[in-house]
Write a protein that binds this DNA or RNA. Structure first.
Lengths: 226, 226
DNA sequence: GTATGTGAACTCTTTCACAGCC
DNA sequence: GGCTGTGAAAGAGTTCACATAC
């Protein structure tokens, strides 16, 4: 009930906090203040405190936050205290790169199935898994469901693939296809789209000298006043 | 001067419009309305019109927007009417995948240099380019500048690499390293971070039945009323 | 002294709704 | 009839500033 009113932007920032806290944990830091965390992440301390306040009171006045406790709590809130099964659709060049990416496993995300339409790839073994025919995607998910779908197929097929995923119970999709897809309400969708990122940066590059050689590049001024 | 007041969120949406318009152009569509474009992109028509209005008046009342003209205009605004040089730092597994990704070139983005610290990789030819020693990054950029840096190195080196890039005139960075980095004001930074995306989706997955099997998954209801 | 937690103020975005034009 | 362009209104999100607690 409270959960329903938490802004989505806040949820999206929590993983960033988790990552910073995990680093502090490695350094055996006991306590961290919103100010220090904010400096680390280029976020205002007020924002961190406000974000956390949606979920409870985790800090101690005069001290800050207990790193271990806050980390555990945020992980639980985000559901990072368990492991998640993922299916990869598209085992071409990009798909292979995703399969061999070492960053998912340690965070509890596991690709347990992969699919392609290319006969040359179907049946091939990639590490622990065997690439299945994308024709069997629906049936395979019915037999053995996953939590998340990773879409790495060409743009013109992406929407169809996602429709099949959703029809077979997948409620979260990470889409690498460079296309705007639609999903029903209640289904989570995230785009990984480097080209869009590049294409917005060029706007600012074009603006040229504005911030370039004119004024000195400086880190966020730290108003040390109050 | 007007440009200075344009919200960044607006700029970030323009590439999405460009992509949709490019598709319509392929289909030889002459004209499109904000309503149709909005349906395609899951964006409200009002938002599209408002966004475009920051840059001028491109539409014709009663008809809509000329696809070709709007596409050309947006490309010019974003600086997509020229080509951009990029340097890749980190030519390991992820870097290789980025090098062989076919989606940059057609959009005018070209990796013209690549760097690594691994002696086994330095000097190796990858397509058109030869991998250089990351020690020479600064000197190489001085000789032959690039517009954009793509960072695909391990997290603990990313900040250092980015500092070198910035010190040598790079004003836009696409960072694949899973870490929060800092750049001076005036330098554009975009993160490509699939793990963060996954970690925010799990929050909603955890919420479970709320939108799952309860109410029927449906596309954004189209209020056909007014 | 130091730092949290939080209403209130402020700023930024989105949406509305309609005049104006095709 | 249909659709744009845009002030005005509404809604979100961020920051302030201070009472409260350690």
């Amino acid at each position: 009930m409270t959960a329903a009113e938490i802004p989505e932007v806040v949820i999206n920032r929590l993983p960033v906090y988790v990552r910073a806290l995990a680093l502090l944990e490695l350094e055996h830091r006991d306590v961290v203040s919103s100010q220090e965390l904010g400096r680390e992440l280029s976020v205002t301390p007020a924002q961190i405190r406000k974000d956390l306040s949606y979920f409870g009171r985790f800090g101690k006045q005069g001290r800050g936050y207990n790193v271990q406790h806050l980390l555990d709590t945020l992980r639980t809130i985000l559901g990072l205290d368990r492991s998640w099964k993922m299916a990869l659709i598209g085992a071409g060049r990009l798909g292979q790169a995703i399969l061999s990416y070492g960053g998912f496993g340690p965070q509890g995300f596991h690709v347990v199935k992969a699919f392609d339409s290319n006969p040359a790839l179907i049946g091939r073994r990639e590490g622990e898994i065997v690439i299945e025919d994308v024709q069997d995607l629906g049936a395979s998910l019915q037999r053995d469901p996953v939590d998340i779908g990773i879409v790495a197929v060409p743009g013109h097929i992406a929407q169809t693939v996602i429709d099949v995923l959703v029809a077979n119970g997948v409620r979260a999709v990470l889409n690498y296809a460079p296309i705007a897809v639609r999903v029903p309400t209640g289904v989570q969708l995230r785009q990984i789209d480097p080209v869009l990122s590049l294409q917005s940066m060029t706007y600012f590059l074009k603006q040229g000298g504005l911030t370039q050689s004119g004024d000195l590049p400086q880190l966020e001024a730290e108003a040390s006043g109050a």
